[in-house]
């Protein structure tokens, strides 16, 4: 699997300082591949990942949508 370049390259939550956790989660969601019958492809992405939140009961995990473009390096 060749390295994918994502634009933007860093992903963050507006509320929580979780970019170190969110960036690999988005990356993982984009590069995940599985076998399927072909219908076509495009190089823009839109993924839903869980922001872990602040890790407390009141301020816990919540889903976030990220979008951008990918390309092969």
């Amino acid at each position: 699997m060749p390295e994918l370049k994502l634009t933007p390259s860093t992903f963050a939550c507006r509320i929580h300082d979780n970019r170190e956790k969110l960036t690999p989660l988005v990356r993982g969601a984009v590069i995940q591949r599985t076998a399927a019958f072909m219908v076509g492809g495009a190089n823009d992405f839109r993924v839903v990942v869980e922001c872990p939140g602040a890790g407390t009961k009141e301020d816990g995990a919540h889903p976030l949508t990220f979008s951008g473009k990918w390309s092969r390096e």
Binding site: P8, A12, L22, T65
Partner: peptide, 22 residues
């Protein structure tokens, strides 16, 4: 070069759920 997450729409959540069936 930072992308900020948005609140997912119901459509986003539905498709994300479908993606998990793969």
């Amino acid at each position: 070069d930072v992308g900020y997450g948005e609140e997912p729409t119901q459509d986003d959540l539905d498709w994300a759920e479908y993606g998990k069936t793969f």
